[in-house]
């Protein structure tokens, strides 16, 4: 059965382009221009994944509202925010509302499709037992590449896809310094230095939330970041 993806985007050109690309990628696509249209359709049937723009027509924060409503209907439905805005506040608010990822509109279609695929893979993997070969152990940390799940000292750390890939890039070869460009490439991001900085800050915070003594990510000023080896 084909996975159904809902795109809620007020710009018709982008909506159609994304819909075409996703259809070509083997998904069934429902595209909506307005929040009300999307909600009406969702009440009848939930999609398998939703790509939502934050500003919808006259509603500047319509996407946030929609995300909240969708999350209320399903706790597991993967939601990706797609927005022209890239301010920290927007990203943080989006992720706090329960979105799984946040991409800016200048992301390339292959990247977007890769992210969608990764989210589906995580969803599928959560239903299956973890396979040993897909699991990376680094000291107290365990990375399940299939499920895009991370645990620290046996406690789950909930990361977005972007954050997971950044952590993955850092831990693949611990002790190696990863510069911003490398991190961006790994996370398939087109962002600036600030966004990398704030991503790293958020990752640190998430780890600190499960372990107050977490201090494994080291900033090498002017170069990048490094996962400490013990």
């Amino acid at each position: 059965m084909l996975k159904r993806i809902a795109i809620v985007e007020d710009d018709s050109s982008i909506r159609k382009n994304y819909a075409d690309a996703l259809v070509r990628g083997g998904y069934e696509v429902e595209a909506f221009g307005l929040r009300s249209d999307a909600m009406n359709a969702f009440r009848t049937r939930l999609p398998d994944l939703a790509v939502i723009d934050i500003g919808l027509g006259s509603e500047t924060d319509g996407g946030f509202t929609l995300c909240r409503e969708l999350r209320a209907m399903s706790a597991t439905l993967p939601i990706i925010f797609l927005s022209a805005r890239d301010s920290d506040i927007d990203i943080v608010s989006g992720l706090r509302l329960g979105a799984d990822d946040y991409v800016t509109k200048d992301v390339s279609l292959p990247h977007l499709i890769a992210r969608i695929a990764a989210l589906f893979r995580r969803l599928d993997a959560l239903r299956q037992p973890a396979r040993a070969e897909d699991v990376l152990h680094r000291g107290d940390m365990t990375l399940d590449i299939n499920r895009l799940a991370v645990s620290w000292k046996a406690r789950d750390v909930v990361l977005t896809v972007t954050e997971f890939w950044m952590v993955h890039a850092l831990t693949k070869f611990p002790g190696h310094v990863k510069n911003r460009d490398q991190l961006m490439r790994e996370a398939e991001l087109v962002v600036d230095d600030n966004t990398i900085t704030s991503h790293m800050k958020r990752i640190r915070k998430k780890f600190l939330a499960v372990d107050q003594d977490f201090d494994e990510i080291e900033t090498i000023y002017g170069m990048g970041y490094r996962w400490k080896t013990n």
């Binding site: 994304y18 022209a84 509109k105 390339s108 279609l109 292959p110």
Partner: peptide, 24 residues
């Protein structure tokens, strides 16, 4: 700059997604 960046992203996204589609 911020507004311009914000306003430009949408048309860039249109061009970019169109080009991506065109490749196929």
């Amino acid at each position: 700059a911020s507004r311009l960046a914000h306003e430009l992203r949408t048309p860039v996204a249109v061009v970019r997604s169109s080009l991506d589609n065109l490749r196929h």
